[in-house]
Design a protein around this nucleic acid. Structure first.
Lengths: 186, 186
DNA sequence: GTCTATAATTCGATAGAC
DNA sequence: GTCTATCGAATTATAGAC
């Protein structure tokens, strides 16, 4: 029936949304299926029915696309700022990166997923824009280190000075760093 | 008795060393008192006897001193590289920062400890060396973001390109960034 | 100081009625 | 599709014998 199909889809989505929130705030081990089900206002056994087990639920919740913008049209001087701004937006409007960051520290599959995301989505951008010095991987890794470190301090550890910096200040400071990692010679 | 006092001290130290290792590799929630006791080759109940509960054991294991060097004598141009080199050494020879990093993602007390460490140990260095622009806190936060991001990618997430970078390459790339955050004008 | 036994929870997962 | 009941395992923590 189309009626029940739509309803089970809504239930699926409710579970996924609740799972994302819980995993993002508590990390993989502290987020319990019971709590996720309670947030979604459904029975815990429904979570198992739809997703089989906790690991598969997490995998579904950790699906993520960086949605990196096309930087080829952006002036070389602005390319770093553009990148920082994009990441800031991406974090503010989507919990998935926080989820991955929190969980990857203690959950090996989450760490692997993080590796995949940066290898498959960030590296191509670096290859496209960076100088042909065969240091693409290192450049992508360095960008990841600064970007993830910023997210870690701002959203996970909540270091006061990093939390208090407004958007423009962050862009002004970190933009040139990413530009250096992305397109400048070492 | 001096005899038993020495023995209980050794036991205490064995527990602490095992705890540091387990917390560093597994994070707070996955590291169990049983596993720590097994590593230290003592009975689990001894851990409770000496440290009361898991939280206090963690607090003891998370005691950490960045041991930041005196940078006032270092040439301004080298100050960033010196800082990166110091952190790399500190990580290689001590698990405590990895322990904090892994645990802080899901354990609030660990995150607080991280805040304390950077506020009480890194901020003074920035105040001492940075330009008098009243941006000390922001500078310290930015340094923390890059340094912790590097550690996260290299030791926790194990992003291949960041793991594969040798010491000199890291210093060459990240040194100038830390110098900028530490002493340069925005 | 050391160890056994176990209490008290909590969690992921399953079985089965409706 | 939904819910109740519960299993089995693991964990922190305690009580108490030796």
């Amino acid at each position: 029936m189309a009626e029940t199909a739509r309803r089970s889809d809504r239930t699926r989505q409710a579970i996924l949304a609740a799972a994302r929130e819980r995993f993002a705030t508590d990390g993989y081990e502290r987020a319990t299926i019971r709590a996720i089900a309670a947030d979604a206002r459904i029975d815990p056994s429904m979570v198992m029915r739809y997703y089989g087990n906790k690991e598969r639920l997490f995998a579904a919740a950790a699906e993520f696309d960086l949605q990196l913008p096309n930087l080829t049209e952006v002036p070389r001087a602005e390319v770093g700022k553009e990148l920082v701004a994009h990441f800031l937006d991406r974090w503010e409007h989507d919990d998935t990166l926080k989820l991955l960051l929190r969980s990857a520290a203690t959950n090996p599959p989450a760490a692997e997923r993080m590796q995949q995301i940066f290898a498959s989505q960030l590296l191509p951008v670096v290859i496209l824009l960076g100088p042909p010095d065969n240091q693409f991987a290192a450049r992508a890794g360095l960008i990841a280190s600064q970007v993830l470190g910023l997210a870690l301090c701002r959203y996970v550890l909540a270091l006061p000075p990093v939390v208090d910096m407004d958007r423009e200040t962050v862009i002004e400071w970190v933009g040139p760093v990413l530009r250096r990692y992305l397109v400048e010679r070492a």
